[in-house]
Design a protein around this nucleic acid. Structure first.
Lengths: 145, 145
DNA sequence: CACGATATTTCAGTATGCTGAACTAAATTG
DNA sequence: CAATTTAGTTCAGCATACTGAAATATCGTG
């Protein structure tokens, strides 16, 4: 009776996610762009400022500010690359982002417990495929500009 | 094998949702706050400018700008309240927001088809509960300020 | 080892959106 | 029906973050 698309659940989920991100950003003093940059950094392990600029679509000058804010919030570190001292090695501070989300992580873990392993597999599959759909649709929107 | 919490799927979903919202905002010329305001408007059916100001935590002056941008994007309408001509009745334009998301809606509908009704029920339940968790965690974060 | 290329920072200029206060218009009250 | 209150808009001032260009430091190369 509670289908996935009932009552715009997807839109409500989306709105709730965005509101949560805004609250995290306000708490930590980082922008939405900063958080996306952090996601890129965590995804890649480490990146240089130039790579980050290309990835999030900003100029190198703006990336300085992004990394400043992430570093000030204790979320990322900026170190010179020992191999090429012009470059930076930007890394995420392990656990720091998780700390900001710890309340959420606990609550979500409690939620997961409610489901059988088979059900968890279904949910996990849906999440994975939804991520793929969102990325594709985001790509399409960004191309139309 | 693909559990809900594997590989920070939740965080990736979250990031993907935010990135999509940013792309929608950039396409339509509305800010993240505007989109949250629109969600409030759609949730309530219609609101006055003052109610909207209280709901999203902005001054009345800022709400004028929010409604301007939503109206310019064709997402909301601003009409005088016939009962009290000082007030505005702000409503969402039916379907307009859906149009912006039509690609996503189609893709998500296709995704839903992959699952049995029982599986869809599990996913729907998880989404509903996740929304509740996110709202609660957002509330907690916003209170700490 | 000098010269051009590359990585990042700094900085001035610009754009955007918010606040707070003054203003306009409409409702309520005595 | 004048005075007060309420709703929304306008506007000046402020904060933030971005761009583009100049400056600095380091690397690779002939």
């Amino acid at each position: 009776m509670t289908g996935v698309e009932d009552r715009d659940a997807g839109r409500e989920l989306s709105t709730a996610v965005v509101a949560f991100h805004e609250a995290v950003g306000a708490t930590l003093g980082v922008t939405a762009v900063d958080q996306r940059a952090l996601a890129v950094i965590m995804g890649a392990g480490s990146v240089s400022a130039g790579e980050l600029a290309k990835e999030i679509g900003l100029t190198p000058g703006a990336v300085t500010g992004v990394v400043d804010r992430l570093a000030r919030a204790g979320l990322a570190r900026r170190e010179p690359d020992p191999e090429d001292r012009r470059r930076l090695v930007i890394t995420a501070v392990p656990g720091a982002f998780g700390d900001a989300f710890s309340g959420l992580a606990e609550a979500m873990a409690g939620l997961t417990e409610r489901y059988t392993p088979a059900e968890q597999a279904v949910i996990g599959d849906w999440v994975t495929r939804t991520i793929a759909v969102l990325r594709e649709q985001t790509r399409i929107l960004n191309e139309r500009r």
